[in-house]
Write a protein that binds this DNA or RNA. Structure first.
Lengths: 180, 180
DNA sequence: CCGTAGACAGATTGCTGAAGAGTGTCCAGA
DNA sequence: TCTGGACACTCTTCAGCAATCTGTCTACGG
């Protein structure tokens, strides 16, 4: 396949997922609607994504990757372990508040997928980052999973402002993995 | 009101909630059905509970109180702080697995109520118990809320056997509140 | 080769009206 | 004090039907 065609394909995929996200959030997602909004034929979508589920799963995949990238960037943006977790949790809370699709995934208000893949992926990426950046820590896997679960819990059931939540989760996580 | 009548009332309430729980779990809850299964008139139920919502909320209240009583008993049954939390979390996991109504409440698969009242009540009772029994601990409220949220998270999304989960949650909670 | 338009059967969804059941309240009677 | 029955109202259920959507195929055009 020639570079130009490939670039066009990637561009189409990206634009398709953008529009698909709008439609899913609006509750109007469908292949005919998506095709007409993109100005392409329905058949082109089937060629690119296989079927309807191919579109939705690609959309979920992209959303979770962006979500986790944002969290890892926040984690990496601070030198202090506690500050890093405050930033990461705050980033997660704000992103979940901004993106309805993400919040639906994390709280289970969706027919697409459950929260499990995101929690597992977040745990694994956070644990890998911790091991890479602070090798002297202990209980790294437990701390990472705790961070993921507590954050998701606070997204679904917020009892305090995001800054307070971030501070609390960071405290728990740091005390879990800090050597004493 | 005479003692006998009062005892009869309490007995009716208890039996009504027993049957109501069966019916809710079976998805067949209704006032006519409940009355006929109890052998009383519909009117008696309305006199006792006010309305349909009065029955369901009384049922939820009883379930959560039993649930929290069981957890607090498990907490109080061990001398070591870590062992106490292992026992408490394990008790919560097993109870949630056994009682469909409870699990539906905690995972949000219910039209009755959300998990918020249970989480808040569990947090408050656990915090009070900790303060009473181990006055030297720090971060007591944070530790109690963490225990509640992590346990609920593991009920809705179990990734390990109950014993492992209980051990992990206990480790996090103890490290959160243990003075170093 | 690649995308489009159109057609197609089968499945899914939305609607609508009728029937039934449930809710909450009242009252007469045991 | 509880019961049985009656009541108006709402809510769910269900069948049938129309519309739409899905996934695939084919013919056409740059």
């Amino acid at each position: 396949m020639r570079p130009m065609a490939e670039r066009a394909r990637a561009q189409l995929r990206a634009e398709a997922l953008d529009v698909a996200e709008e439609l899913v959030v609006a509750g109007r997602f469908g292949m005919p609607e998506l095709a007409s909004r993109l100005g392409v034929s329905r058949q082109t979508l089937y060629n690119e994504f296989g079927d309807r589920h191919g579109v939705t799963s690609a959309l979920v995949l992209r959303s979770t990757e962006r979500f986790l990238d944002g969290i890892e960037a926040a984690l990496a943006g601070e030198r202090d372990l506690h500050a890093a977790w405050v930033a990461a949790v705050a980033a997660a809370l704000h992103r979940a508040a901004d993106e309805p699709l993400l919040k639906a995934l994390l709280t289970g208000d969706s027919d697409v997928l459950g929260a499990e893949p995101i929690v597992v992926a977040a745990r694994d990426r956070a644990a890998a980052y911790l091991r890479r950046t602070w090798p002297e820590l202990e209980n790294v896997d437990l701390a990472a999973e705790t961070a993921a679960r507590l954050t998701v819990s606070h997204i679904g059931l917020p009892l305090a402002p995001p800054e307070v939540i971030a501070e609390q989760v960071a405290t728990v996580v740091v005390r879990t993995c800090a050597r004493r």
